[in-house]
Amino acid sequence: MANYYNIDDILAEEEFVPVVFHKAANGVIIDPSSETNSVEQGAKVELPLWLAQDLYLRQAISISVPACFNQRTRLEIQADAACVDLKSRSPYFYEFGCKIAPLVGDKTIEILLLSAFKIRYKEILTKAYTAAYTTASKFLTLLTKEESNLYEAAQVSMSAFKKWRMGGPRLQRASVLGRKRRSFE
């Protein structure tokens, strides 16, 4: 999973999570607008996942479920997963979910991710192979990074096949025909 040089993996860890500090911390500026450069015990802040993860392992903070996995999103996904704008919630919805689930100890996140992906997968499949780009482009804005990679993979291979079917040796054929005519004369 964790791939040190994978840019998507790095960016997924940049997502913010709401945390509560158990210990007071001195000499840190987490909120630039605060007057003192310290964090009180019980302070609620948003930290990027990579920082929250390590602080959590040192038992300095507790992590709560991020906004993109709240009840409203869940209801929307249950209603029609294919139409939910996951990209605006988090472009790394799935990766983020996989990383956050063990930290907040919420098993339902994984179930949510799987059920969402199952439905959205079908939608991506039909859009990628059948729909024209113009009709699909509206749908594309709803996709997370992982999903749009999937869509592009399908789209690229299909268009490469179509290109091969139509083009290429057409040009060669003309030269063959020319040669043949000469041999008949």
């Binding site: 996989c98 063990p102 399908a154 291979s157 096949f161």
Partner: peptide, 27 residues
């Protein structure tokens, strides 16, 4: 040719399914 057309899509899709299907029990 048919396999080749669907290969990148299926590969990625199965990987994603695998990731979400096994909620990282071991790690």
């Amino acid at each position: 040719m048919e396999v080749n057309i669907i290969r990148p899509f299926v590969g990625r899709a199965l990987q994603a399914f695998y990731k979400h299907d096994n909620p990282e029990k071991i790690p």
